[in-house]
Design a protein around this nucleic acid. Sequence first.
DNA 1: ATAGCTATTCTAACGTTGTTAGATCCCGAG
DNA 2: CTCGGGATCTAACAACGTTAGAATAGCTAT
Lengths: 204, 204
Amino acid sequence: MSTGTRRERERATVRESMVAVALALLEREGAAALTVRRVAGEVEYTAPVVYQHFANKQALLLALVEVGYERLRERMAAAARTATTTDDRLLAPTGAYVRFAGDNPHLYALMNNTAVDPHDRFRAAAPITRLVVDLMTGWAAEHGVVLASPVEACEVAWGTLYGIASLGQLDTIGFDRAAHLADRALRALMLTWRTHPDGDYPAA
Amino acid sequence: MSTGTRRERERATVRESMVAVALALLEREGAAALTVRRVAGEVEYTAPVVYQHFANKQALLLALVEVGYERLRERMAAAARTATTTDDRLLAPTGAYVRFAGDNPHLYALMNNTAVDPHDRFRAAAPITRLVVDLMTGWAAEHGVVLASPVEACEVAWGTLYGIASLGQLDTIGFDRAAHLADRALRALMLTWRTHPDGDYPAA
DNA sequence: ATAGCTATTCTAACGTTGTTAGATCCCGAG
DNA sequence: CTCGGGATCTAACAACGTTAGAATAGCTAT
């Protein structure tokens, strides 16, 4: 029975190389090139072997999405750590987010593709949601401000960031400008949170 | 030669019914059901006939995207017309945008799908960009404020709106809440534009 | 009215996709 | 050495986008 664990280890290794190969393929040649047969071929297997590690193509794509969100979380957390000022601890992860979208455009598109089950995507993104909530409550505390609804503020910031980063994929805008726009948008939000932490803004 | 124009009319009619059928199919059964054969069948033709009206499936999808942006523009313009206060002239189109995304989730997803050429999508959305710029400059004028960069403000607002509306497709959030979030986000932006029209926000 | 041309439509097929069934092969256990 | 079970392959299926070529329809001109 001692061979059982090695078998498992080998199985996991094959699975991981499939994910790695699929990631490389996706980013190198785009979503259209990401076919089951090519992934299998790139790890020197035939197509049906893929189905011993993933229930179907969706499951493989979901694995890529999960890796994507994990890498994104790492980048954002690292950016937050290097920040020195209070506002930078929010602005730096923002920049990291847009930069990630620029560095891995196809993976980023997949992470937000409606073809992958929205529920699964949301679950994969949960750690980032937690991180952002933490960053935001930390920011508010350092500013001596209590937000009426931190989760609402978080959702607004998340949506904003997502939308502006997606704008960067348009070649008429580009990711450098998108990073600038995201910075502006978040600064505006922060300004409002400080002056109106209750979330109730006056109209005119 | 008098039959030539009637032929053209008939051709245009067939093309339009294909677009109409494709739109209905997309919204009723989702993107996966939108196949060339089904569109052809639904207008009682065989598949190759589709290729006499569209170069390929991409072209058909692009036609749907164009219809989508046109309808969205109409809805936003109508909402702006019914608004009474200065701020509502910006907030009402915002609500119309999110509501459109909620009413036509699959079409909205297609309009922002990277599978459709980004350049074409941007071109299809151009009239809306114009509308939003107009609304924004009008808003600024009525508030007696000159924005340092109206196009930057527009891009930020557009990205924000897009991101938050996309959030609505997650069943954990939903379009009602997304509409609320979009309202909050835009109010925050407007507040900032009034107090800092130069676009230079203080840090802390 | 009829013959012929042209545009329209269909049938049939190709290559590729995701996916599954069954044969085959290999490797470890008794 | 044999045998049993998991791993892997071959072959195939249905459905997809797409194209070529046959058939058919409808208009035009005599």
